[in-house]
């Protein structure tokens, strides 16, 4: 049986750990609030831009813009959004597992795909696995602005237009609620599904100078916005899952402290009982 002092040491170290995890839980909770607000601020922009894109794309359905056409797939790109740090429960591993499963199902060799990584965990994982990581962004702030990821978004869209790859998928964790996040795999390019979501009511736009010229400006902006939206979504899930992970760590620590205190008391009582028995025994021997 562990000595009294050993148990006491374990209790105090567990207490210190639980103080840290509780603090981290509260920090994540407040960051989650901000991240939710950021995601909300983005909604009107995204809603507007998809309205206009679908109105124009359906108005000029046969425009043949390269970003709207699916072509035979020789090479695929994956954009993976993870966090920079761990201690977020299964947040990173869920996203990475979804990507590796997709890669294993679709490809036989490393030459058939490339990876764009947002977040250190994802980048390190794919670099270590020998995947071709074209570009990565790490150490993003907790509340990223559009300018922070403009470079990588522009590159991801630009290389599709160049024909470097023929499909772009995006994997991130979608924020459903504070306790639920879903890994989402989404096809960003080519934009095959927007023409079907047309409302039809406002398709009578005048295009200045022409529908094609506007699509030229609009579609890259739309695709980049999709990526930014996913990043905001991912950030909110990151904070939510870190909060949940830290909460369960704190709960586990208090359970542990409870059972350690119980065995501490038991050990102390045993020691007292033993002392009394010894004294009584000593007195009895003297009589």
């Amino acid at each position: 049986m562990a000595s009294l002092r050993d148990i006491k040491n374990r209790i105090s170290s567990t207490k210190k750990t639980s103080q840290i995890t509780r603090a981290m839980q509260m920090v994540s909770a407040s960051k989650l609030n901000r991240a939710e607000l950021n995601a909300k601020a983005f909604v009107p922009y995204m809603g507007k831009i998809s309205d206009v894109v679908s109105a124009i794309a359906s108005g000029t359905a046969d425009s043949g813009h390269p970003m709207l056409l699916s072509r035979p797939v020789k090479k695929t790109a994956y954009l993976v959004i993870t966090s920079d740090r761990g201690l977020a429960g299964a947040y990173n591993s869920n996203v990475i597992r979804a990507v590796t499963n997709a890669i294993r199902d679709r490809h036989t060799s490393v030459d058939e795909y490339v990876v764009f990584a947002i977040g250190r965990v994802g980048r390190d994982f794919f670099v270590k696995r020998g995947a071709n990581v074209i570009e990565s962004v790490v150490a993003l702030p907790d509340h990223p602005s559009f300018a922070d990821i403009k470079e990588i978004a522009r590159k991801a869209v630009g290389m599709f237009t160049d024909g470097t790859y023929d499909e772009l998928y995006m994997y991130y964790s979608h924020y459903v609620s504070a306790i639920q996040q879903e890994v989402t795999g989404q096809k960003v390019l080519p934009l095959t599904d927007i023409a079907t979501t047309n409302s039809g009511a406002n398709a009578s736009y005048e295009f200045e100078p022409s529908g094609e010229a506007i699509l030229e400006v609009l579609l890259p902006q739309y695709a980049e916005s999709l990526i930014y939206g996913a990043l905001l979504d991912g950030k909110a899930s990151e904070h939510a899952s870190r909060m949940t992970a830290m909460k369960s760590a704190t709960d586990n620590a208090s359970d542990l402290i409870g059972s350690l205190t119980l065995s501490f008391n038991r050990a102390r009582q045993a020691a007292i009982t033993q002392e009394i028995t010894e004294i009584v025994g000593g007195v009895a021997a003297l009589e």
Partner: peptide, 19 residues
């Protein structure tokens, strides 16, 4: 300032999109 030049928009303009 649109890509093709400067335009002014008044209330009741016809629906239009321009970069």
């Amino acid at each position: 300032n649109t890509a093709t030049g400067e335009i002014g928009v008044l209330p009741g303009h016809i629906p239009m999109v321009a970069p």
